[in-house]
Design a protein around this nucleic acid. Sequence first.
DNA 1: GAAAAATATGCAACCGATTGCGCATTTTTC
DNA 2: GAAAAATGCGCAATCGGTTGCATATTTTTC
Lengths: 348, 348
Amino acid sequence: MTNGKEDKEITIYDIAKRLKISPATVSRALQDHPRISAKTKKKIFELADEVGYRRNHFAGNLRSQKTQTIGVIVPRLNSHFMSSVIAGIELMANEHGYSLLISQSSESARKEADSAEAMFNSRVDGLMVSLAYDTNTLDHFDKFFRKKTPVIFFDRVKPHRSATSILIDNYQAAYDATKHLIEQHCKKIVHITAPPMQNVYKDRLAGYRSALEDAKIKFREENVIVTNLTQEAGYESAEKILKMKPLPDGIFVANDSCAIGCMIALKEKGIRIPEQIAFVGFNNDPMSTVIEPKLTTIAYSGFEMGEVAGRLLVNHLNSTSQINNTTTIILRSDLIVRQSSLKSPAGH
Amino acid sequence: MTNGKEDKEITIYDIAKRLKISPATVSRALQDHPRISAKTKKKIFELADEVGYRRNHFAGNLRSQKTQTIGVIVPRLNSHFMSSVIAGIELMANEHGYSLLISQSSESARKEADSAEAMFNSRVDGLMVSLAYDTNTLDHFDKFFRKKTPVIFFDRVKPHRSATSILIDNYQAAYDATKHLIEQHCKKIVHITAPPMQNVYKDRLAGYRSALEDAKIKFREENVIVTNLTQEAGYESAEKILKMKPLPDGIFVANDSCAIGCMIALKEKGIRIPEQIAFVGFNNDPMSTVIEPKLTTIAYSGFEMGEVAGRLLVNHLNSTSQINNTTTIILRSDLIVRQSSLKSPAGH
DNA sequence: GAAAAATATGCAACCGATTGCGCATTTTTC
DNA sequence: GAAAAATGCGCAATCGGTTGCATATTTTTC
């Protein structure tokens, strides 16, 4: 069959024996330790290469008590935004020799806690989390904080003195989105969002409110619809909207899929968008360019967020930088104007 | 601060000492070894629980030469289908104590080989792969085959005597899709697909062709448009279509996003869908219900595919079943008829 | 050219769980 | 009641790198 050599794993002991030196020297050489002479290193690297030596992570990690693994917990894996974030994290992690342990909470705080427990037991070197819908305490991460394992929250975050957060300025983004609707002469703007338990929804609500007030439009509780932001929820919200008198002339939704569900329902009822009701979403999901009219939305890159989070964690773990110096990182977001919000003829 | 106990990791030695028994007994008890008495086990479990013992994977894996890790390589992470598959795999893997090492090839055979190499070096217990666009050899998996590490291909597969494949019947699905268009009285049906290097595209092309021939419609090379199946490619393909004389009256696209790109472009040119041109896509992407008219498509569950693949691998690794007995698993797929293909008034 | 400093390598004890083998104790067998 | 079988547990080696400390060798210093 095969060579025979290829079947047995090569260890540093094999290399040491062949070169008549000690395993310690081989180990150090492989780590590019300064105390090993260039000549010896060369010999070792060449032989290692020749015989196809592969470091055994388990032996090394056992000794060094590092796992070279990063845990990632997200609400769900199969959303465009989240899978982009993960792609970004993966890129950074892979580049620096870290592996990813990925788990989803399915928007449940309990499963999030379970995942955290599992991650803890797997002794991940660092943890990245985007919180579930109904997470209202960070107690399940206490173990990590106590052990000084770095934890990074992204997008859906909660402030904590031992953790770093990466997110966009949700307040400002929502302010801009709402202001844009106002500039399109909307007078009655509805906001569809999730329960304001998570920062993202609380801040978006606040931004919406401020924009209204700055334009001397009174904020009204009854113009805020709280849902779970799924596409179905959007569809159902349309009913509530149709019952409003007068009908709103603008709707700002805290996420695109929900906005799209709502638009579809309203269109079925014969509402013209944007003429009767203008729409702004949030996230720049690929779907936002498929719906008709195309959806105005807030764009921010999940991939970039993943990269930033990944880089931050990796740098900290390799201690080129201390994570503690940073508690919050704000990434850029942009309002992308499309037809769904353009009442004025400016929109070519 | 904290208890003090919580800071140091508990090992089986600690438990052994406290109970005045040997670590071997503790180890065996924790594995529910039959030779340890129920009484002893009980004591051990209780203490382990009390002091918060966590098994050290590294020590165990080092000894047992198992990593309890499954490698996953996908073309890209941020597609609805792929992230669903991964969600399915994650579920199964997690349930059985396996971790996932995830990596993306970005549709490049070279990066796929790199990832495979990395997975091999991480000594994954098993590997799941959906092949990149331009992968035309499985040589980069030889190492796994030689080492008898199980490899499962899913969706985008290539037959190999040492690997198992999980996929749908692409031929039949494409046949059904095309037949459906024919039943809608389409006479000239265009097929947009990717280069037929991968099974999925080859089989879909064959199904399309057979359906035509069975309906006594001549298959014409010039009615097949080869692209990379992105949404942009669909958009661009519309140009080619508009130049055809006569215009086709039906288009079967090998994936939804490309179909949608094409539909958007055609709509912009004033083509009426489905009246002038009927559309059928493939994958049942969430976008397919957002486009107008809603897209008829082939539905199959990525989540389920992930679950099946995960279960198969896990069972094999736990040797409750041998994977070698199975070389191919075909999952169910369904034609979902929506407005985009309904020329006849039968549509609801 | 001897002492001091710098460089290069080795020894051996870890890290924590697993497991073949052996011994001791208890139970079964006839 | 002695031999055989079953049960319960411990000893000690093992998996493969890592690293503090010691030792050996070379280079520098004056």
